[in-house]
Structure formats: C-alpha cells, structure tokens
Write a protein that binds this DNA or RNA. Structure first.
Length: 234
DNA sequence: TTCCCTGCTAAGCACCGGCT
DNA sequence: AGCCGGTGCTTAGCAGGGAA
C-alpha cells in the first residue's frame, strides 16, 4: 500500500476526545485532526513524539486530516488507523504474502454472516473447497517487549470469536488474523491481564479449530505492507 | 458527599433504499 | 450508474440523575 502523497509529520499534543487529536506542525501552528481508532490506544499515545497524518479532499469532512501513524517514545512506528488493517490484509492475501491463505479464487470484504447479524471482514471462496472466514484485528499494544491483544475489554471481540467457532462447526474455515501495526512487536499474546474472558475464549476458539495467525507490518509515512508471520502465544 | 448507572456525543464511513 | 439523505456502527469521556 503506497501513500501518495506521503503522510505529513507533526508532533502529538493531545488526544482530548475520542475522535480528535491536536497536533503541532513544524511551523509551530496547531491543527485538530481526526483520530480513526475506536480503541483505548493504550501505549500508543506519546505527547511530544512525532505523528503522521493524511489529508482528505472530501469537502464534507469537518476535519480534513486523518491521523495515520504515531512514533512511540522508543522510536517504533505504530499504525493507529484501524481501517487500514483490513485493507493491508486483503492486499497481502491477493499478493500471496500470507502463505496460509493462498489458493482461493475470490476475495470479498464485509460479507454478512453468522446468527448475530455480523459482517465478516474478509471471505475467501473457491468452488473446490470450503469458504474461509477471516476476522482481522489490529494489534498495537506493546508492553515489556510483548505484543498483546486486546488493549481493552472487548465484548464485541468475543462475539466475533463465537461466530468464527460457529463457522468451523458449519464446515467452513475460520481465521483470526492479527495485523501487527507496530514495528516493535515481534510476537502476539492474549492480554489476559486486560480481558481474561477474551483470553479464555481465544484459547477455546483455537481448540475448536479457529486458525489464529499474526503478520507483522512494514510501516513508513509513504507505504505500509504485511511482510512476515510472527508467533501467537495463547 | 460519594458512587454507580444511563444516556448522550464526538467524526467518519459503509450501507441501504429511493430517486434521477 | 450515480447521487442523496437517513441510519447504524465504532468507544472514551462526560453530564446528570438517582440511590446509599
């Protein structure tokens, strides 16, 4: 995924509302940008450190700029736009980067499924084999050298796991794919200290046949892409 | 006075049906 | 096909109401 033009750089001042952050530009002026991350952004907020943002030409937007990446106080790059995770995953699948997910004829996004009126992030189909349901999760929490998911209690995430298990029961393939948008994370673990219920359910889903994958991203203000798999500790 | 719970809001985007 | 308005969905943070 190439970003043209490349993201512009600023310095994070504060994220003072759920959707808004203030950023200082190199000339000293301050702007408010949209923050496209619905999570807690635990360990992703480093006031005073660099951030990068894109600019939309959509005239209906109140804030033209979108926060895309942040630098941690250790110099790692963090992709904070959760919407990019799905696109990065789809692009990587189509490019054959994810070896576990090759050999399908068709890829569809946001397809309705399950009994709880949900939508699956990605659906892979071929005539000669079971469909593959993929739920994409963006992993950005780094603590003591370990990557964790989730970064806050998530009942919604539990619902997704239940639905993936349901797909396995119906004879389909089901995959939970962690897109690691943090250059300092080399392995992903269930955040039992944050959401023990989710950690239990993740282990249960794995036992039930849900495949759990994680892939690291290469991130820069001009491009992002999935590069290689990394281990998941359950 | 303190605590808990509920409800609302923020901005963007995807989606839907109705229309041209 | 494309545009439009309306709706739903995301979660942290806060206000306000009610109970202890």
């Amino acid at each position: 995924m190439i970003f043209t033009p490349a993201f512009e750089q600023g310095k994070l001042l504060r994220r003072y509302k759920r959707f808004l952050a203030d950023v200082q530009l190199s000339d000293g002026s301050e702007i408010t940008i949209h923050c496209p991350n619905t999570g807690s952004m635990r360990n992703c907020l480093f006031p005073g450190e660099p951030v990068w943002f894109s600019t939309s030409d959509n005239p209906k937007r109140k804030y033209a700029h979108t926060w895309e990446q942040a630098a941690s106080n250790e110099g790692h790059i963090i992709g904070i736009n959760t919407g990019r995770a799905n696109a990065l995953a789809a692009e990587a699948i189509e490019a054959g980067v994810i070896s576990e997910l090759t050999g399908y004829d068709n890829l569809r996004r946001e397809v309705k499924y399950g009994s709880e009126n949900s939508r699956i992030d990605l659906l892979l189909e071929s005539e000669d084999k079971p469909a593959c349901y993929i739920e994409v999760k963006s992993c950005t929490l780094l603590e003591q050298g370990q990557g964790y998911f989730p970064d806050a209690v998530t009942t919604r995430g539990q619902k997704h796991l239940r639905e993936l298990m349901e797909m396995v029961k119906l004879g389909h393939r089901a995959v939970l794919l962690f897109v690691v948008q943090h250059t300092g994370i080399t392995s992903v673990a269930a955040a039992r200290h944050i959401d023990p219920d989710y950690a239990d359910l993740l282990a249960q889903a794995h036992q039930a046949g849900v495949e759990i994958l994680a892939y690291r991203c290469e991130l820069s203000p001009s491009a992002a892409r999935l590069i290689k798999s990394c281990p998941v500790k359950l």
